[in-house]
Simulated scan of single mutants.
Amino acid sequence: MRLPRDDASGLEWLLFEQSGIVTWAQATAELTPATVRHLLASGRWQRVCRGLLRAAPGGPFSQDEQWWVAVLAAGEGAVLAGLAAARAGGLRGTWRYEVVDVLVPHQRRATDLLRRLPPGLPAVRARRVRQLPDADRQRGRPDRTSMARSLVDAAQWARTDDEAQEILAAGCQQRRVTPAEVGAVVDRLPRARRRSLIRETLRDVAGGAEALSEIDLVRLCRRHGLPMPDGQERRRDAEGRIRYLDAYWRRWRPHVEVDGAHHMDARHWAADLRRQNRVWIEGDRILRFTAFDVRRRPEEVAAQLRAALSAAGWRP
């Protein structure tokens, strides 16, 4: 929505802050009930469900509107949580959620509005919590859990272990949060689901592996008795830009690239080939594996990596 003028009314500012979604009580605090009914009858406003209004004539709900509907429908004290909260905080990724999670105070149940949301809006799931420390809460539009708490909850509620790890790794890789900040949240949640997996993922991320495929590679090395890579190596390319190698062993100079889905793009593929050539020119050995092979064919990957390290002088 467009930023209101300095002399705008309280309602205009409220609609701006809440992406055009208000409760009946909020609207009638600024306008008479008759005026609100007229706005609805004329089609200028829309009734989302009983007690919840949208200051727009209709059409698909934007993501911001969906988040506000979820928080306001859940009632007083509700905050956006999980993957939706992480996205509101700027996390990028392809994960989809069919349910918007919100946290509500444990002493009360969520309102009946959550069961009355119309088609076209994602379902809202209210999760009661006994306490939400200030460190786990973040002011925003709407209020939400902190990025670290959002990632831990998203990992708890993810459909699979792989998805949980991907979300955690992405949050750290995109510099939205540090492993230490996520670890502090886990310390406060002794009954968190996937607690061991989250801690293991954080240890690998802190060791330099940030993408899930790189984490899988580190675990493969540990499982097959291979030396640990030195993490992401900084290199300056021919244009002077800083690039990172997925895994590098400085002592023996093998370099491993793990190719994800983006390598199927022709532009990425051509750029990767040029970068690979420069690595060879500088004297390093380079091995390339798909993320699928690292995860599903670990014995083959380990055998080739062992051969490359041995040829470079490594002895078990």
Rank of each mutant, 00 (worst) to 15 (best):
A291G: 15
V129A: 15
W67R: 13
A110G: 15
G89N: 05
A8M: 04
A148N: 02
R96V: 12
E12K: 09
A211Y: 11
G58P: 03
E181Q: 15
N277F: 02
I198E: 04
P142R: 09
R193W: 06
G120N: 00
L40C: 05
P119V: 06
C221H: 08
Q173K: 14
D204Q: 09
Q165N: 05
L117E: 10
L14D: 03
L168N: 10
R139G: 12
D246H: 09
E17M: 04
G89M: 00
G283D: 12
M1T: 09
R47T: 08
Q18N: 05
H224L: 03
R128A: 14
E210P: 00
R175N: 11
Q66V: 04
Y97K: 01
A74W: 00
W67M: 08
I281Y: 14
R243Q: 07
A27S: 11
D230H: 14
R144Q: 10
A164D: 07
R195H: 09
W13Q: 03
H224N: 04
L80R: 01
R141W: 13
P105N: 06
V69P: 13
L83S: 12
D153E: 15
A270N: 10
G51T: 03
A206N: 08
M147Q: 07
Q276R: 12
G260L: 04
V102C: 13
W314K: 08
P142G: 10
R234M: 06
A261K: 09
Q276M: 06
R149S: 02
L305M: 15
V301Y: 02
W280N: 06
R176D: 05
W249D: 01
V256I: 14
G20Q: 13
L287E: 15
R137W: 14
E65Q: 15
V48H: 00
A206R: 15
A155N: 02
A110K: 02
V279W: 00
R109T: 15
R193I: 01
A148Q: 04
W68I: 09
S42Q: 12
I198R: 01
L309F: 01
W280A: 14
T32F: 00
E163H: 12
T178C: 09
R5F: 14
P227K: 08
M1P: 12
R127C: 06
A170F: 00
R44M: 01
D7M: 08
Q165T: 12
A155E: 07
E300I: 07
G51Y: 05
E65K: 02
V185E: 06
A55C: 14
T160I: 02
R175H: 13
R54D: 11
A307M: 12
T201W: 07
A302K: 03
V182T: 10
W314Q: 11
R222G: 02
C172S: 06
A41P: 02
V99N: 09
Q26V: 08
L53F: 07
S19P: 01
V218P: 01
R223D: 06
V104G: 09
